[in-house]
Design a protein around this nucleic acid. Structure first.
Lengths: 137, 137
DNA sequence: AGAAATTTGTCCGTATGTATC
DNA sequence: AGATACATACGGACAAATTTC
């Protein structure tokens, strides 16, 4: 049971399987996925592993999850996909240092800096936006 | 990615960063820290490392963790504080919302937004620069 | 209207294997 | 060899939102 992580990890395999069912129409848009507890039984994986798999689908924009309700398949508006606002909370990107940051970090202007943006919401309302800059390590 | 721990270990650096955010008011007393899973994403560290960092804050009495709920910042009654050795500059200003922030906060462009900047240093070197935006109330 | 069951969210502790300093 | 850190995985427990009875 422990962790033979040769090759592909289990949560990825499970995500693949679920994705296939969604795209194959077995789990139609708008309907709920089986509860996490059902999925642990079916795949004989721990809940954490199941949740990792679902997290992948959520990042891909295939599903959305609501506390106390479940995870449902998004009614796919595929034309607009892939761009912006998948609603993920943490975004990282590499920017180049402006004069201010360069001076602080004691690097040249234009040097690579990692920017992390965290958007925190409560009840779908944005409460704060935090951007953290640090040097790559 | 693996383990260049020149000087101070990762979990200590992360603890310092979180402490600075707390003392800088970015994470106000009474509010919850981001979940372990969010912190692993933001700092790109493993769960074990994040948990070590939070353990430090807990030992310092800065935070308390409730099982199943989260880790919140304690309402610090003893402001004797003595200003820890790792320094941080905090600066607050009012800016006007650009298109991006306006959209997130659902306000008009140009609306007032409070920006808090925390510069954390360890041994006179800037470790991170964090800017937090929130609405006035 | 209220209690119970369901379901997701989060934390706890532990374990294994890999890799680097 | 030991400390640090990563990724993966398990099982358990409590918290909170939603649904069902």
């Amino acid at each position: 049971m422990p962790t033979p992580h040769y090759g592909q990890p289990r949560y990825r395999a499970i995500a693949d399987e679920l994705r296939n069912r969604i795209e194959g129409g077995i789990i139609p848009p708008g309907t709920l996925l089986p509860a996490e507890s059902k999925l642990t039984a079916e795949f004989r994986a721990s809940r954490g592993t199941i949740r990792q798999a679902i997290a992948i689908l959520r990042e891909e924009g295939l599903t959305a999850t609501e506390h106390g309700r479940g995870t449902y398949v998004k009614t796919d508006m595929r034309s607009s996909s892939a761009h912006r606002q998948t609603g993920s909370d943490v975004q990282q990107s590499i920017i180049s240092a402006d004069a201010y940051l360069a001076a602080l970090f004691q690097v040249d202007m234009g040097a690579e800096i990692i920017e992390t943006e965290v958007i925190s919401r409560t009840a779908d309302k944005v409460v704060s936006v935090t951007r953290t800059y640090r040097l790559p390590r």
